[in-house]
Amino acid sequence: MAPTDNMLISVAVPTLNRCAYLREALESILSQTYTNIEVIVSNNQSTDETREFLDLIRDPRVAVFHHEKRLSMVENWNFCLSKSSGVYFLLLSDDDFLDAKFIEECISAINRLRVEEKEDISVIYGNVITVDTHGMQLYSRKNESITEPELGWQFLAGWFRENRNVQLCSTLFETEQLKAIGGFTSDNLYAPDAISRNLLLINAKTLFVPNAKSYYRVHLSSETNSTFSASTRLDWDLKMVSLILSKMDKAEYIPWLTKLGFRYAKKRYILSSLERIQSGNWLENLSSFNQKYVRVFGRKDLFLLGLPELALRFILNNRLGRQFKGVVRNVINLRSA
């Protein structure tokens, strides 16, 4: 389905027992300055006041579905996708919300492109602002300044280098293409959205819209929060890298992207292991880290890269390290003022 000036956009909200947040999410959707939208709300057997709240909504753009049987997270996402008929599809978690001009900025950006540039754009994404449970800003990690549509391999390279900050709430998927790959995969519960997005982009393009802002909420009850071990996360990250690159047409980029992908997985494993070492039995967790690291990356890599980086991050994360980083930031700010 080709993009048009006034294309229909589907916005879906899967929800479960978060009525207070759901109100804010829906308010941010229905107050969008771009009005040609359909809204799908999938109530996953909530036991709070969610049903009563949703039954009061009279906006004709909103379709509400109440489930009598509990769905998994990914099943609920795919149910939302199955009910969507827009050119692009946005899945907004019930605890996230959008800037009022988010969709307008995305549509304006794609409409400014030449006809040939619009072809094969499978994903449009904006900047993400991370907020706490009260909606107060924690931080905003901006993306690199990308002014043109990117090919899939270019995006993947940036993502593996962690120069592309993308969340579900900041992403418009081309609906028919997302359906064509089977929607969201349940093979990786740690990052089902990342797998689907990257599979879409392998042989397509992405468009970054810096003025499109969305708000990603961090709190303890996130289903995909810290329920998985560092070892499981590493296994899934490596599986994701292998799966994505196995589908890529451009063979000349695969060795380079594989190296970047392994480096990405390695860094994430070090960070998640550090969390465990700091919060639990540090000697036992350090031993587990060493054993897994050697099995995957080798003993030489452990002593040359793994343990030194783990030690450095441990130092920087303690009180003196945080103070040192604060001094460095202040010096940088003074020089740039």
Rank of each mutant, 00 (worst) to 15 (best):
G152M: 03
S214I: 07
K179G: 09
V218G: 01
G152R: 02
Q177W: 10
N163Y: 08
P149T: 10
L200E: 03
D193P: 02
T147V: 03
A194P: 00
L178S: 04
N225E: 08
T227M: 06
A230F: 12
F160I: 01
E148M: 04
I195A: 10
L172D: 04
A157H: 11
V218A: 06
A230C: 13
N188I: 15
I146V: 14
A230N: 09
R161H: 06
S196L: 07
S221D: 12
E176A: 08
T185W: 05
P149L: 11
E176I: 00
A204P: 00
L207D: 10
I195D: 11
L207Q: 05
L200G: 01
I146Q: 08
R164K: 10
T206F: 02
L199H: 01
C169F: 08
V166L: 07
S221K: 12
V218S: 11
S222N: 15
T147W: 00
Q167C: 13
P149Q: 10
L220K: 14
N211F: 03
G158P: 00
A191G: 05
F160G: 03
Q154N: 08
V218P: 00
G158A: 08
A191I: 09
A194G: 00
R197I: 10
G182I: 02
L207T: 07
Y190G: 03
A194Q: 10
G183F: 06
N203H: 04
F160N: 02
C169E: 09
K179M: 05
L189C: 01
V209S: 06
T232M: 10
A212G: 12
L178T: 08
S226C: 04
F184Y: 13
T232N: 07
D193A: 04
K213D: 01
S231G: 00
R197K: 13
S231F: 02
T224Q: 12
N211L: 09
I181C: 04
N165Y: 12
T224Y: 11
P192Y: 12
L172V: 06
I202R: 09
L172N: 02
T206H: 01
P210E: 12
S196D: 02
P210L: 11
A157K: 12
L189H: 02
A230D: 08
